[in-house]
Structures are given as C-alpha cells and as structure tokens.
C-alpha cells in the first residue's frame, strides 16, 4: 500500500527538488526533499519499506540529474540501511530524535555523495564542499525534519491504522 503512495510522492518530491529548491538556497546548499521523506518514513518503524522508497526516490533524482544514473539511489539506500539500525533503541521515543537522525543521515548522504563525485565525476575540494554545500544542506534538512516526521507519522497512521481490541 505504501508503494502506491510512495512512487508518485517521491517522484513529485524529486521534481520539486529540481524546480523549487533553487529559490531556497543557503550558500550552495539546498534541502534534500527526497532524503528527508525517506528518513522520515524510516522513523515510522518501516525501515524495509523505507529502503525501497530510498531506491525509488533515488532513481527519480537520477532521472533529473547529470550524475551517473543510480548513484543517488545507491547512496540513499546505504543511508537508509544505516538509519534502520537505530530502530528499537531506548531513546527512539524522544521527540527530538528526528533531528539527530536527520543530522547524521544528511551528513552521511552528502559525504558519500562528495566522495562518489570525487571518484566518478570530478575532483572537488572537500573543505570547500563541506563549507558551501554539506553544512548548509544539512542545516536545511534538519530544519524540515520535524514537520516531515510529523507528516510521515500522519501518513503512516492513515495507511496502517492501529487495531484496537474491544
């Protein structure tokens, strides 16, 4: 069921990331809507579905990007897989947890992307990229992490309503 919602939603978010995020740049960084959506879904204890979302969203981004096709999908999958290990930890219920997870996920995503670009596309200065892209993008991602996780919880509640025993 979540895939029926996920495919169009992630495609739309990838398009919005391409069309809209250029207007909301901080230095050279932009919010990564697909990453935020995938991580938010992962936090609803659906990490296996989130991994599929990561691949779908990654391919949607790859369709709109000049980077090698599949690169975004693979990096998003790795990040979601790593985030899935946080599932079930004692501090999971803390309301600020999405911020911490998004911080780690965003940094991991951008650092992996930078290394992939350095290996496959062009040599870039890591210090410059860290200052101009990774930190601003991570800041923007953390900024929208809480509303995104609330939206993901609401969607999760609608798709998988809890059964109540009478």
């Amino acid at each position: 069921m979540s895939y029926i919602v996920g495919v169009p939603l992630l495609s739309l978010l990838a398009i919005l990331q391409s069309v809209l995020m250029g207007y909301f740049q901080l230095l050279d960084g932009r919010a990564d809507l697909v990453l935020v959506a995938v991580i938010a879904w992962s936090l609803t204890r659906r990490s296996e579905q989130a991994m599929v979302w990561a691949v779908i969203g990654g391919f949607a981004l790859d369709l709109l990007s000049g980077l090698p096709f599949g690169m975004n999908a693979l990096i998003l999958l790795i990040v979601t897989f790593l985030v899935s290990f946080l599932e079930g930890r004692f501090w999971e219920a803390h309301f600020l947890m999405p911020l911490g997870v998004m911080l780690v996920a965003s940094l991991t995503y951008h650092i992996l992307s930078t290394f992939a670009v350095m290996i496959l596309v062009q040599d870039v200065s890591f210090a410059y990229v860290f200052r101009r892209i990774i930190l601003p993008s991570t800041f923007l991602n953390v900024l929208i992490a809480l509303p995104a996780s609330q939206l993901a919880s609401a969607l999760h509640y609608r798709l998988y309503p809890q059964e109540v025993e009478l």
């Binding site: 398009i15 981004l61 975004n72 892209i133």
Partner: peptide, 10 residues
C-alpha cells in the same frame, strides 16, 4: 528553463 540539477555538484 524548467529546472536545475538536483545535485549541487553539477
């Protein structure tokens, strides 16, 4: 012009 590359590297 209908969009920009979603990756800041390109």
């Amino acid at each position: 012009v209908i969009g920009r590359d979603p990756s800041p590297f390109i």
